[in-house]
Design a protein around this nucleic acid. Sequence first.
DNA 1: TCGGTATGAATGAACG
DNA 2: CGTTCATTCATACCGA
Lengths: 217, 217
Amino acid sequence: MEWDQQQENQLQNQREENGVMYVKVMTDEQLETLRKQIAVYASICEQLVEMHKNLTAHQDLTGGRLENLYCDPLMTSGGHKISARQRWTPTAVQLQILERIFEEGSGTPSKQKIKEITSELSQHGQISETNVYNWFQNRRARSKRKQVVVAASSNNKNGAESEVEIEVESPKTKPENLLLLPQAQQDACFQNPDITSQLHFLGGSYHIYDQHAWQGE
Amino acid sequence: MEWDQQQENQLQNQREENGVMYVKVMTDEQLETLRKQIAVYASICEQLVEMHKNLTAHQDLTGGRLENLYCDPLMTSGGHKISARQRWTPTAVQLQILERIFEEGSGTPSKQKIKEITSELSQHGQISETNVYNWFQNRRARSKRKQVVVAASSNNKNGAESEVEIEVESPKTKPENLLLLPQAQQDACFQNPDITSQLHFLGGSYHIYDQHAWQGE
DNA sequence: TCGGTATGAATGAACG
DNA sequence: CGTTCATTCATACCGA
């Protein structure tokens, strides 16, 4: 990593006075804190990678039951009618696209827009305009009352001592499922610079996350 | 980030000599460097999370669903363990109350009511409005769908704490492993960009049920 | 420990 | 649009 390039213009914080050079400084402890934070991030990355691996592997191995795309009408043994699913299930790619469109743009896509979107999505799987329409309707309705209760908000009760106990445990802790947090929470993770909050989920004392999209009132 | 709070007790690294205070320090540039490192990590994490999301989504389409956490350190009285789990589990008392309300107030849970109920139930264990909402949703849906496929065999077991009136619910879902198709295709889907062709043969035949009353334009 | 069942949660579709 | 229904996924829990 190379940010050294920018170091130069950081020296503006120095100040000389009476022959003594003053600099805004950081003590070792603070430094240590930072290091820990970095360590935490490193840890997070590590675990995320691990997670990623597992997921990938999982898909390959037990990718088992995925019947997503409308399966073939051909029924094999049994003679039962397995038939296609009734409900459309967006594929990963489609979801990504939809999500993106949803975020960037305007709230309600026009009919025309829907056609375009549908058209694009159809490149990634079976889909109909109705599906798209419904998706947006639902997405909107549900996101409206969706709120994530991010826990682990800072709790600087004891003044100076911000116990940053990073117990960066090695993945020995039975990582099979840990930190598979809802993305909402994940997002929060990165919007919140306070790493201590992340320590929580790393340490296992994750907090609740709640709500989805119902309650209006 | 705020380490300012820690400044106070960090000064142990100070040292006075000849009337001049020396401190082991870190200049802003160094600090900045560290910050950048953290930022980089944050960025990496972010990307990893993104990746994870995608993967999760993939799994979604393949049948998987994501998971969320929900933990509760307390939650006793149901005779269950205290392990922090992912899914809310109503306690016996909560169930009684819910069941009672379901029978009488039946029909429409109304948001306001849910809040009240939640409030009441929260005195008997961890719970959220969403839980209540879901419970009613499920309760209604399931009591409705009474497909009696199984002759309810003698089901008269009286446990120790038989305070709960178990309804005559026996929707034997009979997990017929329907739609278990080779997922090899699935995998290929994501490794192979041009699945389209396959999709065609897969989904081209039947069109999902469509139609609706939305089209305006 | 493993397999099946009960049920909380997620979400596409539909209704008023 | 907001709310509700229906279906499905995932997991807690139970019995052998």
